[in-house]
Design a protein around this nucleic acid. Structure first.
Length: 477
RNA sequence: GUCCCCAUCGUCUAGCCAGGCCUAGGACACAACCCUUUCAAGGUUGAGACACGGGUUCGAAUCCCGUUGGGGACGCCA
């Protein structure tokens, strides 16, 4: 049977890390099966039945987040709200079959029952008082909800693909609400009807839904629908070990995008959170599709660790395409409020990218480290660079300027040779000779190889920047 | 509180299902050293874990029970 998975977020905020991983697993599972000949579709359903909290902006944020991550869904995204008629019809059918009933309890009665259950140490809240009551006793001024007439004895068992066999006694579960008093369907009803109608074969979601699965299982049973396979994956926790939520701060995938993380690094990191393939750490998407399966999903929750994400991101940056990185950097540089880029910016960035990308773990860092290439002269020196331009540094730089100017060829080797000669002649270390050049060229004390920079910048620009630095007032000291 | 789930280095994990190959492997982070024009990267090395207690067994990280700890769920939210 063709595999159909789905990602079903509620549009009440941005796409957070936990949701992103759930989406990734669903996507990977579907794509894996697609490549192995037995179908494989990944659907997107927006669970927007809570009209008060759902927003169009959030729907857009989910689309954007998934798109950025490279998780494409099949067909149009389904709006759950738009399917309300189908949900209602299912409830009506259950009512007609005597598998559901109307309940006229007031909010006050419900609150009392909830308190009583708490007090008596019971999980089951609603006592089923309208289960078999004659509808003629219904109070005229109350719009009823529709509840499922759930089994009261025996147990409900879920054969979960990740959690294994999980069971609960039916007397722990009360009769869930299917239709609210205003006639709108609840999440429980909507999920079951939609998953069935959309042909979903595998429900892969966070294990905070595990207890919902019991109730949904009862609903499938009442509706006469075959249950899909369930796979409840462990949640991702914050550094404090609790379920990820707003209070953990930067958690929307868009935040990570802004912070300079690459989608491929994000995918790799998220994949390794709760899933493994032996000791493999660097797993690119093609490989992940090939390897992914639910049997290698762990059962315990994982904590989100930015440091590991950052390390992975650095690796992906190092192997990223120079052109793509240049575009990413240029976009950020251009967006900066103080942006005044040299005409040669793009060209220099691209030529220097090989040396630049070895030294950055995020695109933000890469951009900062790249700015000197894009800048117009004269460039300003930061504190450490200024220090390198002390009296001795200036003398050394002045001599180096003459050597560089005299160099017949402008290649890394030739330029490095010139610096070595200077070091030899002045009895200084090569690092001492390089420091002021670096300061003059980049305005900083840390950069890629100065000889590479010299060649990327070219003879004219390099000499000009050195001239600018030498023309500055000497640093006090 | 009740129900359900989980439990290997600080973190992510391999090993567990089919006990011995485990003086428990890898990765991130950390420390030292090497390489080196700075910083990274890279290389070498180091420190660092089977939550606890009982069983079962010739033998348990692996199987069973309990304890403790953590998490999740208990809505006319999703």
């Amino acid at each position: 049977m063709a595999v159909v998975t789905r990602f079903a977020p509620s549009p009440t905020g941005f796409l957070h890390i936990g949701g992103a991983r759930t989406a990734l697993f669903n996507w990977l599972f579907a794509r894996h099966h697609a490549e192995h000949g037995d179908g494989g579709r990944f659907l997107l359903r927006i669970e927007d039945t809570d009209r008060a909290r759902s927003t169009e902006a959030a729907v857009q944020a989910i689309h954007d987040g998934l798109t950025w991550l490279g998780l494409d869904w099949d067909g149009e995204a389904v709006s759950q709200f738009a399917r309300a008629d189908a949900h209602r019809a299912a409830a009506e059918r259950l009512l007609a079959d005597g598998k559901a009933y109307k309940c006229y309890c007031t909010p006050e009665e419900l609150a009392e029952m909830r308190d009583a259950a708490r007090r008596d140490g019971r999980k089951r809240m609603y006592d089923g008082r309208w289960r078999d009551r004659d509808p003629s006793e219904a109070p005229p001024d109350i719009n009823p909800v529709v509840r499922l007439k759930a089994p009261q004895t025996g147990e409900t068992v879920i054969g979960d693909l990740v959690q294994g066999q999980v069971r609960v006694a039916n007397d722990q579960l009360d009769d869930m609400v299917l239709l609210r008093s205003d006639g709108t369907p609840t999440y429980m009803l909507a999920v079951v009807v939609d998953d069935h109608d959309m042909g979903v074969t595998h429900v892969i979601r966070g294990d905070d839904h595990l207890t919902n699965a019991f109730r949904q299982s009862q609903l499938y049973e009442a509706l006469g629908h075959a249950r899909p396979e369930f796979a409840h994956i462990p949640l991702i926790h914050g550094p404090d070990g609790a379920k990820l939520s707003k209070r953990h701060g930067a958690l929307g995938v868009d935040t990570y995008r802004n912070d300079g993380f690459l989608p491929e690094a994000m995918r790799n990191y998220l994949l390794r959170l709760g899933w493994s393939h032996g000791d493999d750490e660097i797993i690119e998407t093609e490989q992940a599709i090939e390897w992914f399966g639910l049997d290698n999903v762990g059962k315990s929750a994982a904590r989100f660790d930015v440091q590991k994400l950052t390390n992975l991101n650095g690796r992906y940056i190092r192997q990223a395409d120079d052109r793509a990185l240049t575009d990413l950097v240029l976009a950020r540089l251009t967006a900066a409020p103080s942006a005044k880029l040299a005409p040669e910016a793009s060209d220099r960035l691209f030529k220097g990218m090989a040396g630049l990308k070895e030294r950055a773990k995020t695109i933000v860092e890469l951009t900062e480290n790249s700015a000197f290439y894009a800048a117009e002269r004269p460039i300003s020196l930061d504190e450490k660079a200024t220090k390198a331009m002390d009296a001795e540094g200036r003398r050394s730089l002045a001599r180096m300027r003459d050597r560089l100017a005299a160099s017949e060829t402008w290649t890394e080797d030739a330029l490095l040779g010139a610096a070595k000669e200077e070091a030899e002649a002045s009895g200084a270390k090569l690092s001492a000779v390089a420091a002021p050049i670096r300061a003059a060229l980049t305005g900083r004390a840390v950069s890629p190889s100065v000889f590479q920079i010299l060649t990327v910048l070219g003879r004219e620009q390099s000499l000009a920047r050195i001239g600018d630095a030498l023309a500055e007032r000497p640093a006090e000291t």
